[in-house]
């Protein structure tokens, strides 16, 4: 059973081959680590899978039911896909609370005119903000949070998507960058919880200790192609992976 599967996925920017013929599958209840040197196509890979970058060719299968050859970003929750961003992308001049509420309320424009957030939406916001430990800042503008708190708010946002049933597949794009050790521990706990809830967790990360600790499976990209795939310890000990990663 795969919740997400790419078939011959290719993305070229004019003459630059960012991703070429990538066929990978992701399973529910597992954390898949995606690693690779800078420029290996990790970000492009996530962007194509979340509709931010159009696909050149190939397809994306969702839950073994839908086969997509083109994706628009606003359809992602329909397929249960959500993400965090490598460069934190918050709604800066909105409160921390509004950053969460805006992803929990209804999507239709007409209904949204007559909807204000309910106790249900507030309860979700309080729950996820408390989970990441920033509830006390809920009235602050997002722009006024520290870097670590901003990362945690992004994670709270995907937790809120999970709470409303719109996140079966969650991409974490370098979620640990710039976090204090206690925050790192918290984010790892959250990922393990999501795995135990049966979510498909895809972790793009450079820290190999965290990849070893968390990943059930590791995928290594190099120059937009699949270099290796499999158990973390096995993959990370391969000579070609070490060479690609360290440039040796």
């Amino acid at each position: 059973m795969h919740t997400l599967q790419t078939k011959h996925l290719t993305k070229h920017f004019d003459t630059v081959k960012a991703i070429t013929d990538l066929s990978i599958s992701f399973e529910p209840g597992k954390i898949t680590g995606v690693i690779g040197p800078n420029g290996s196509g990790k970000s492009t890979f996530i962007n194509t899978l979340t509709g931010l970058t159009p696909i050149t060719s190939g397809s994306i299968g969702v839950a073994e039911k839908v086969e997509l050859t083109s994706i628009v970003s606003n359809d992602m929750p329909v397929y249960g896909i959500t993400r965090t961003f490598q460069e934190v992308r918050l709604f800066e001049q909105m409160s921390v609370l509004d950053n969460i509420l805006v992803v929990t309320t209804c999507r239709g424009w007409f209904k949204s005119i007559f909807e204000k957030h309910s106790a249900y939406h507030l309860a979700i916001a309080e729950k996820v903000l408390k989970r990441v430990g920033i509830w006390q800042f809920h009235n602050k503008l997002a722009v006024n949070l520290s870097y670590g708190q901003r990362k945690l708010l992004e994670i709270a946002r995907v937790l809120a998507m999970s709470e409303i049933g719109k996140a079966q597949v969650i991409f974490f794009d370098e979620p640990y960058a710039g976090l204090f050790p206690e925050m790192v521990k918290l984010v790892s706990e959250i990922m393990k919880e999501l795995r135990s809830e049966g979510k498909t967790v895809i972790l793009v990360e450079h820290n190999m200790d965290l990849i070893r600790e968390l990943s059930d499976k590791v995928i290594v990209l190099d120059s937009g192609t699949l270099l290796a795939e499999g158990n973390a310890n096995h993959v990370l000990s391969r000579k070609d992976v070490v060479e690609a990663y360290l440039g040796e």
């Binding site: 931010l52 992602m76 929750p77 992308r89 918050l90 709604f91 800066e92 007559f114 909807e115 204000k116």
Partner: peptide
């Protein structure tokens, strides 16, 4: 002050980011 208004502000702040959460901006 409605949910609609909150989405407008999110569009102003980061249109791509809010679109990933299911809004046809």
């Amino acid at each position: 002050s409605s949910s609609f208004g909150r989405v407008l502000k999110a569009i102003r702040e980061d249109e791509k980011a809010i679109s990933v959460f299911g809004y046809n901006t």
